[in-house]
Design a protein around this nucleic acid. Structure first.
Length: 570
RNA sequence: GGGGCUGUAGCUCAACUGGAUAGAGCAUCAGACUACGAAUCUGAGGGUUGUGGGUUCGACUCCCGCCAGCCCCGCCA
């Protein structure tokens, strides 16, 4: 994956050669990095690695940097053909590089023309599975489901864009004790009309009623358990009911996913792995990994400080550890992916560490990755039915749309536009944070339309499209000349896009991309303010138009990777 | 008791995994529309990065000890 080094790859190669010829074989220079300059006054790019080599080379870092720069100077060709215009050593051994504006222009032109440069195809021929969203059947989606869905989907989109063959799977909670309660509740707590027009809301209602009764009425509880057993044994009636519950649930989930622009390749819930679980447990026993303990079958992971994982309950049933292992077995057999990514809340970290460890002991070599995200709370309290602070996803999206529409309608915007902006705001407010941070839900924060927000980026996009429309050009031809500071800052920033997408993928953090897009839009807005485009004389006009077009391309692509729509008119 | 995550401006968050003077948004204050779209832009104030040590040319970042908050720790997922 690291064969691509970004637009500065050329610079890295040049510096690496310089280091190698200054200190042949004296150290490993292969990991040398060239980063954007931290301050424009230092130049355009910088390399900080000379300091790191001080110990290996037994020389003061500044001397090392100077020696490398001297070698580099020898290779600098006269004239503007060389990418590097200037290289100098500063402070303890920073190497500051200034690139030629001609090179900058040519890299930009390449970025504007070549899709493969915009998003490097590092994933070609590689298969991965991404497992996210995973709501429980028969319950409505609420704000607690946003994070897995939105973060997971952004990771999904990023990996697809990088050329990976991605299988997005929704591991629904479609099995377990709640179905005994549901079936009993369906039969006893709903009216005939409610049964005929079954909705997820009704299912949720009968679940709440039935589980409340089970708590106070032992006979009811036993009846629920009996229904569950019947379901598990394949009773036709219960099986049909269960199937209907799942279908209704998926129908409702799909309605939400359609609004959010989320698509899955498969909807394999826990029930999909029922039949393979006994085999998994048998294998664990054969390998001597699972042992009896207090009536249950457990895998002891104390030596790794991971406690004990139960793989078969004392009543003979299986739990999520076994289900996840069965799932991995199936995915490996069917797809043989090089990686499986799980996007779930951070509370499950121990669980994932446990079963990842067991999977390795079983011989699975697929790279298993857990992407944990922080908890969402409301007014400082956990989101739960009991707290009564369970805001339905549907409700949130409606409110997002309503607020956006209030602003959009004055300009003749329609409902579709209000959705694009409102939903974009919801997604961005989540994606712009590092996934691990806990979020205390707040209407105003989640639906921010100004500043560092989704609509800020959409506005910048619409504005640049409008500019291109007015110019009557798509800005795809003509030469770029980077001369003013504002142009240069924007140009250098745009060149960082491919590397940023890669960084976001490697870290499984869409927030890295979101942050970059915001910075880029800020630089563009600043450029836009200070630099006339349409009113400029040629060749500046054409050049700036082109810069605008590339910005539009980068922003449009980037927002697309986050699953945020880009209307060309706002 | 054991473990995980988090702690940065009044608030919400960044800081490219050890680099140069810790940056944005919101809020506050002062400016910019007869202007390529003001959902924007320009500027100002605001910091002992929880705390005490350590490692080194250099620490928000790594190591150790404390403090605070959240979350996990065999039959829920």
């Amino acid at each position: 994956m690291n064969s691509f080094t970004g637009c500065e790859g050329e610079l890295v190669a040049r510096l690496r050669d310089s280091f190698e010829s200054a200190f042949p074989g004296a150290a490993d220079f292969s990991k040398l990095r060239v980063l954007p300059a931290t301050d424009p006054k230092f130049g355009d790019f910088q390399c900080n690695d000379a300091m790191g080599f001080a110990r290996a080379l037994h020389q003061p870092p500044r001397k090392i940097a100077e020696a490398a720069v001297a070698k580099l100077a020898e290779t600098l060709s006269a004239g503007a053909a060389d990418p590097i215009e200037k290289a100098e050593v500063a402070g303890p051994g920073f190497i500051n590089l200034t690139v030629s504006s001609k090179w900058l222009a040519s890299r930009l032109e390449g970025l504007g023309a070549d899709e493969g440069l915009l998003v490097p195809q590092v994933g070609a021929g590689r298969k991965i599975v991404i497992d996210y969203s995973s709501p429980n059947a028969a319950k409505q989606m609420h704000i607690g489901h946003i994070r897995s869905t939105v973060i997971g989907n952004a990771i999904d989109r990023i990996f697809r864009a990088l050329g990976y063959d991605v299988i997005a799977d929704n591991h629904l909670g479609d099995w377990g004790t709640q179905f005994g309660i549901l079936i009993k509740g369906y039969r006893e707590c709903l009216t005939q009309e409610e049964r005929d027009n079954l909705t997820v809301a009704n299912l949720e209602k009968c679940y709440v009623l039935s589980s409340a009764k089970a708590k106070e009425d032992e006979a009811w509880k036993d009846a629920c358990r009996a229904e569950l057993v019947k379901l598990q044994r394949g009773d036709a009636d219960n099986r049909a009911l269960w199937k209907r519950f799942i279908e209704i649930s998926i129908g409702e989930f799909d309605r939400m996913y359609a609004k959010l622009g989320v698509k899955f390749d498969t909807y394999r819930g826990e029930s999909y792995y029922n039949d393979t679980m006994p085999g998994v447990v048998a294998k664990l026993q054969e390998m001597g990994l699972a042992v009896e303990s207090e009536g249950a079958l457990v895998v002891n992971l104390e030596s790794e400080k991971l406690g004990v994982a139960i793989v078969r309950k004392s009543d003979g049933g299986y739990n999520y550890t076994t289900s996840d292992l069965a799932c991995v077995q199936t995915r490996v057999a069917e797809y043989d992916p090089e990686r499986i990514i799980y996007v779930t809340d951070a509370r499950q970290q121990l669980h994932f560490k446990q079963w990842f460890s067991i999977a390795r002991k079983m011989g699975y070599t697929t790279q298993l990755v857990h992407v944990p995200f922080g908890l969402m709370s409301f007014a400082g309290k956990a989101i739960s039915t009991r707290e009564g602070n369970l805001i339905r996803l549907d409700e949130l999206l409606s409110e997002a749309k309503r607020r956006a529409f209030d602003i959009v309608k004055d300009r003749g915007g329609d409902e579709a536009l209000a959705e694009a902006i409102g939903f974009g705001a919801v997604k961005y407010s989540d994606l712009s944070h590092d996934p691990i941070t806990d979020i205390d839900f707040d209407w105003d924060k989640a639906l921010a339309l100004e500043g560092n927000s989704g609509p800020y980026l959409q506005y910048a996009y619409a504005r640049v499209q409008s500019l291109l429309d007015k110019a009557g050009s798509d800005g795809s031809s003509g030469g770029i000349v980077v001369s003013t500071p504002a142009e240069k800052l924007l140009a250098l920033q745009l060149l960082q896009f491919p590397g940023t997408v890669l960084r976001a993928a490697n870290a499984y953090k869409p927030s890295i991309l979101a942050d970059y897009l915001f910075q880029t839009a800020q630089l563009y807005s600043s450029f836009y303010q200070s630099s006339p485009v349409l009113k400029s004389e040629e060749p500046v006009r054409t050049s700036r138009l082109r810069l605008c077009a590339i910005f539009g391309r980068v922003l449009g692509k980037g927002l697309g990777l986050l699953g945020i729509q880009t209307p060309s008119r706002i």
